[in-house]
């Protein structure tokens, strides 16, 4: 019995505790990201934003969540019930499982696996299923059109994201996320690989269906896109999943290009602050970029979106990958 306790029960309990320690703050962050989005956009448009529920409207996300929880889940008559209900669960689950490999600080990571970045890429490439299944199972025109747009868009931009990741991997020589952060001790990759950083950020916008690439849910033409038919908690799961994905893409941007948990300069006032706080601050900075873009730019036209992905980003990332490889070989800078 003691063997069972120390061999199985205790490690399981520890892992569950670690998972909760990641997921609960993450969900809280998602709730307050919606608040931040409304406040930031309100400020940019010279409005007040939410300011009624609680001090400065700080309880607004909680009120929204409770409202959605108490609403009725409506499943359309022609819908494919199982797939219809499974789709939001898949979206939500996928946006959470990717956090298993994210290093929050030196050694603070749930699963420090060797192929961390491939795992991130694999999970983000699965995200399209929730959307496609939702659009198909709704058995309705606008959700279906939204799902088709989303599938094409996510598959296209994944290609350039893949090349950007390969470029970073060339400079690191490892697929482990902690190694990628540690390789940036001398200089963050955002400086030598600036064009790739910009492309990664734009592709992240497209991958998370954010403005100006939010065509899958463009309200002026497709009602609400693929989740038009969803209500109450099924809708809330999509919403949570999308925002958790935004935070995830910001975290990957931070790890790949902004030095993860490392301070900007390794000198006295900066390295007093612990790593996870730097990590969070950098994620918040990238997220602010997401919100800023949404408040600033008009929506792209769909053919322009495809042109940008396939005719601009794909050739450019491929070219820059060759240049990076050439420079690394020519100056003998390849990581050992």
């Amino acid at each position: 019995m003691a063997d069972f306790w120390s061999g199985y029960a205790l490690p399981t309990a520890i892992i569950v505790a670690q998972i909760l320690a990641i997921v609960l703050p993450l969900l809280l962050a998602v709730a307050y990201l919606t608040y931040a989005e409304r406040k930031v956009i309100a400020s940019m448009q010279m409005r007040r934003g939410p300011n009624v529920v609680g001090p400065f409207g700080l309880l607004q996300p909680i009120a929204d969540g409770v409202k959605l929880l108490f609403k009725e889940t409506i499943i359309p008559a022609g819908a494919n019930r199982v797939v219809f209900v499974a789709a939001p669960m898949i979206t939500f689950t996928l946006s959470l499982v990717a956090w298993a490999v994210i290093p929050f600080g030196e050694g603070i990571v749930l699963a420090d696996i060797n192929v961390g970045i491939l795992y991130l890429f694999a999970i983000s490439s699965l995200g399209v299923y929730g959307v496609v299944m939702a659009g198909w199972a709704s058995n309705s025109k606008y959700p279906f059109l939204g799902a088709l747009r989303s599938a094409a868009q996510m598959v296209s931009y994944e290609v350039s994201i893949g090349f950007v990741m390969v470029t970073v991997l060339l400079c690191v020589g490892s697929l482990n996320l902690s190694d990628i952060v540690n390789a940036q001790r001398t200089i963050w990759f955002a400086v030598p690989l600036l064009p790739m950083f910009v492309i990664f950020f734009i592709s992240a916008l497209a991958e998370t269906n954010r403005a100006p690439f939010d065509l899958p849910e463009s309200e002026s033409e497709l009602v609400a896109g693929y989740f038009s038919e969803y209500s109450s908690m099924t809708f809330a799961l999509f919403f949570l999943g999308e925002y958790a994905n935004m935070i995830l893409m910001s975290a990957s941007t931070t790890i790949l290009f902004l030095g993860g948990w490392l301070p900007p300069l390794d000198i006295a006032p900066f390295n007093w602050i612990p790593g996870p706080i730097w990590f969070g601050a950098k994620i918040a900075l990238v997220l602010f970029g997401f919100l800023w873009v949404r408040a600033t730019f008009p929506r792209y036209r769909y053919d322009q979106l495809m042109r940008l992905g396939w005719k601009v980003f794909l050739p450019f990332t491929l070219f820059w990958l060759m240049v990076t490889a050439g420079v690394l070989v020519a100056f003998d800078w390849l990581p050992k």
Binding site: S125, V128, V155
Partner: peptide, 22 residues
């Protein structure tokens, strides 16, 4: 074989099956 596992997911699930489903 974690590398093969990830490649299987990226290539088959993430790309081929999406187009198939499409």
């Amino acid at each position: 074989a974690e590398f093969l596992a990830m490649i299987l997911v990226v290539v088959y699930v993430g790309a081929v099956a999406v187009l198939f489903l499409f």
